[in-house]
């Protein structure tokens, strides 16, 4: 088994095919989208491949140390040009192909007009633990 991180972006990824902001959808389309996302996670729990999923607020701040005894320096809110992560799902699957297939499925969640969004998701393999047997 190998773990993968599926990242969804508020911005920073290439534009989706069906790129209409959500508040311009009909209420039924919004509900269908949410249902699809919930069903996807539930199904992955059922197959034993779901690990974790969280959504992030679009608000955030950069922080760095400014040396001992001084308060940290902050920069934000994030500039409009910045890549902004919206949320993630961690899956634990047998193969890279399976991870690709699942990411593709998630990207096809329904959007405006009930048509798939075809949004870009980022798929990142975890650096796993060092295996017991190496030779």
């Amino acid at each position: 088994m190998a773990k993968y991180l599926l990242l969804k972006h508020y911005r920073g990824a290439p534009s989706a095919v069906n790129d209409v902001p959500m508040d311009q959808w009909t209420p039924q389309e919004v509900e269908a989208h949410i249902q699809y996302m919930n069903d996807f996670a539930t199904r992955l729990e059922g197959t034993g491949e779901f690990v974790d999923g969280q959504a992030l607020s679009p608000e955030g701040t950069f922080v760095r140390s400014d040396g001992e005894g001084r308060p940290p320096v902050t920069d934000g809110p994030f500039a409009e040009t910045k890549d902004l992560i919206a949320g993630w799902m961690v899956i634990d699957v047998d193969t890279y192909e399976r991870a690709l297939a699942l990411a593709g499925e998630l990207s096809a969640a329904p959007g405006a007009g009930g048509k798939p969004i075809h949004e870009w998701l980022e798929l990142r393999p975890f650096l796993g633990a060092h295996p017991t047997v190496t030779e």
Partner: peptide
């Protein structure tokens, strides 16, 4: 809230 926005926009 998104649903409310969508409902009024519609």
């Amino acid at each position: 809230l998104t649903l409310q926005a969508a409902r009024i926009s519609q």
